[in-house]
Design a protein around this nucleic acid. Structure first.
Length: 314
DNA sequence: AGCTGTGTTGAA
DNA sequence: TCAACACAGCTG
């Protein structure tokens, strides 16, 4: 029952065109693609199941895009031989790219629609640094840029971090604050860890809110706050990777234009929580992989962040 | 306010 | 394992 899935998918596509226009303008009853579900607003959602649990892959404008998202997830979750919507020779590089990253990260890329971009970048940097074979995770030195003590609203239900204007304009990519339809949102990808490669990637939407006239990190921020156990008064420090020697450049280790780091540390004050006691924050484990982090009164959660940005829309 | 994506259920 | 359906809760 498993061998014909790919052929089925192809057949479905072909026969679909001949299918009578039963749907017409109504909300489509269902999708012809595996792992694709209709959304109330006419868009399409993608999902995959693992261990009795659904893993949401995001929403997409059309069925095909959603179907591709499912395919990518299937490739990562179930391997090359997974049944997919668009059968074809599984790209070995892509498979490697996927295998090298946590499922949760792949899911995140799909949700934020950055998979294609990151795949290209990933393959580029891989090709660049692959010469020596496998270089172990080498911590990346960083130089401080700016920091902010998060306010109650930064960690509240507003789901945003207000970035001080001065610093935002100085260190973050310029925002095309067109009041028109294409607001050109900027996505910032962060990776925790030492930058050596074992970090988890976080992505935030960076935008300017005219209503409050402030630069903000919005989407993804609430999740970050939740999982890091960030509280009002804690400090978030942005820094930049100290890319110094031309040696590194020559070695091809520097493929990213700029790399920035962030460090968030708990407030000095130990209000409560019993000294020594740590709070266990379980990461959003999409499927099998589970990341557990410990936070204590004097345990600073050092977050290495890889800064990459790209404009969506143009 | 509108959309996402989770809770939930029944079917395959 | 999978999708249909409803609507809490999140986003902008």
């Amino acid at each position: 029952m498993s061998t014909s899935t790919q052929e089925e998918a192809e057949l479905d596509r072909m026969t679909e065109e001949a299918a009578p226009a039963a749907a017409a303008s109504r909300a489509p009853p269902s999708s012809r693609y595996k792992g694709v579900v209709p959304q109330p607003n006419g868009r399409w959602g993608a999902q995959i199941y693992e261990r009795h649990a659904r893993v949401w892959l995001g929403t997409f404008p059309d069925e095909e895009t959603a179907a591709r998202a499912y395919d990518v997830a299937a490739l990562r979750f179930r391997g090359r031989d997974a049944a997919v919507n668009f059968p074809g020779p599984a790209d070995a590089d892509e498979v490697a790219f996927l295998a090298a990253r946590p499922k949760a990260e792949v899911v995140d890329m799909l949700r934020k629609h950055t998979y294609d971009d990151e795949l290209r970048q990933g393959l580029r940097s891989f090709a660049a640094g692959a010469g020596a074979g496998g270089h172990a995770a080498a911590p990346v030195p960083r130089v401080p840029l700016f920091e902010k003590a998060v306010t109650p609203s930064d960690v509240g239900r507003l789901n945003r971090l207000v970035v001080p204007k001065v610093h935002a304009e100085k260190h973050f990519p310029p925002l095309n604050d067109k009041e028109d339809d294409d607001a050109a949102p900027v996505l910032l990808a962060f990776e925790d860890g030492d930058g050596g490669g074992a970090g988890k990637v976080w992505r935030f939407r960076y935008s300017y809110w005219g209503s409050s006239q402030s630069y903000v990190l919005t989407r993804g921020w609430s999740r970050f706050v939740r999982e890091k156990g960030l509280a009002a008064g804690d400090t978030v420090t942005f820094s930049q990777a100290a890319i110094s020697t031309a040696t590194a450049v020559a070695a091809g280790e520097i493929s990213d234009k700029r790399r920035m780091f962030i460090e968030c540390r708990k407030r000095k004050r130990t209000t409560k929580g019993g000294g020594g006691g740590g709070m266990v924050v379980d990461d959003c484990s999409h499927g099998g992989e589970r990341v557990v982090r410990l936070f204590g009164a004097n345990i600073a959660a050092a977050i290495g962040s890889e800064f990459t940005h790209r404009l969506i829309g143009s």
